[in-house]
């Protein structure tokens, strides 16, 4: 998630302290100059990992310290999986194949690299899928396997238990 706040002396330290108290993990602290439309403020963006259940605690602890949180952005899609597909991807409507994952709401195709083959040869693509949880990833892959079956595509998945 991302935390954005006003950059005035002492605020940063006050904001960082509670994060470790609730078991969060700070990934990056980024100072931003043009964050806010409010003329005189500087923004700080903190990228951190925290259990969903502790988020309200954290927010109130930070607020108690007089830090103003401007915005909280949550990146829900933490699970990432790469698969390769082979077959007549264009003839079988690649964008439909991608949509079937995207329309689930719990998983998305976040990158697609397509290798263009010689005419009439099967094409190959690498898809990066992101999802909210491991369970959602499994569900997304099940959908993809079904689509592949009807469209006669070959899906190559990573070795089980390995995230690539």
């Amino acid at each position: 998630m991302k935390l954005e706040m006003k950059d005035s002396p002492g605020q940063l330290v006050s904001a960082l302290q509670p994060i470790s108290e609730v078991g969060g993990n700070i990934i990056a602290v980024i100072h931003q100059r043009d964050l806010s439309s409010r003329e005189d403020t500087l923004g700080v963006q903190i990228v951190l990992e925290i259990a969903e259940s502790r988020l309200t605690d954290l927010v109130s602890m930070i607020k108690e310290r007089g830090v103003n949180i401007l915005r909280i952005g949550k990146d829900r899609l933490l699970y990432k999986q790469t698969v390769i597909m082979i077959g007549h991807l264009m003839h079988t409507d690649l964008s439909d194949t991608v949509d079937r994952i995207d329309c689930t709401g719990f998983a998305e195709v976040t990158a697609l690299d397509l290798a263009m083959p010689a005419i009439n040869e099967p094409s190959s693509a690498r898809l990066t899928i992101k999802s909210v949880s491991k369970k959602d990833m499994d569900a997304a892959l099940d959908i993809l396997r079904d689509v592949a079956k009807t469209k006669k595509l070959l899906i190559i998945e990573p070795l089980e238990g390995e995230l690539v």
């Binding site: 082979i86 690299d113 099967p122 190959s124 190559i156 990573p158 690539v164």
Partner: peptide
């Protein structure tokens, strides 16, 4: 028997292979 060399290249680009 349906694998393409493109598929192997796409894997190799991610420090993987098939």
């Amino acid at each position: 028997d349906r694998l393409t060399n493109d598929a192997l290249r796409l894997a190799e680009e991610k420090d993987c292979t098939i």
